[in-house]
Design a protein around this nucleic acid. Sequence first.
DNA 1: GGCCAGGTGAAAC
DNA 2: GTTTCACATGGC
Length: 270
Amino acid sequence: MLIQKNDDINLLHTFDCGQCFRWNLEENGSYTGVVGDKVINLAEKDNQIITNIDSENFLNEYLDLNRDYSKLKNKLNKDIVLKKAILYGSGIRILKQEPFETLVSFIISANNNIPRIKKIIESMSYNFGDAIEYNGRMYHTFPSAQVLSNLTEDDLAPIKSGYRAGYIIDAAQKVSTGVIDLDSVFKMSPDEGRYTLKQVKGVGDKVADCVLLFAFQKYSVFPKDVWIKRILNNLYSVDDKAFDEFVNKNFGDLGGFAQQYLFYYGREFL
DNA sequence: GGCCAGGTGAAAC
DNA sequence: GTTTCACATGGC
């Protein structure tokens, strides 16, 4: 299936900017990922996106194609540094990812590096998710909270998540039993959502903020990790103490978008 | 070998 | 409240 290309999407930038872990570049230049129970392949060709998915609505939603990025970019472009970052990361789109998967993925991300984060997530899916065949290959869904909640830390040993195994199980149990109602976070303010997510062991401000931004569409949230601290320090001479105020004042409601552009830009050049 | 990686929890001040 | 340290694992 073809969908008319929104002229403001770039698959490389979108899948490489650090928000997601399960999209991989194929030899032919297309990207394959597992989203929910679907294996999706996407390719850019001329001014169109070619995909195996027959639901245009599904992709519009996941890629947030109905959002007018030119509008928010126009606002952010007033900042000279951001203008460069936006040019560099043109076509980044913040995906609407599944909350539980995003929560567990960013729990795994703590004190870890990206290649290993991806390996652990793939291994977890391979061991505990459902198999799907696509194009002669087997793929695996991200395991449900229900399935993970019945595992022990020993069961998780094969995925090599280290001390995070207990955190993963805690998240699965709190979600599957309803101690935490993830759906309710959609309706919450960022502060309420952060408070709710932080009830899970292994979830602090940074992990919670990534989940709020990448799964719950809290676009004002600006996840604060070592990289973005380094980047703001370098590009704006903002130190740790001035960080929060600077971010609120300069990026406001669009903090999440600004964070993604700056993160992607800064990681390449700093 | 030691240090680091998209932090966090727990135990000190 | 703020600071300090351990934490599984793997790559360099």
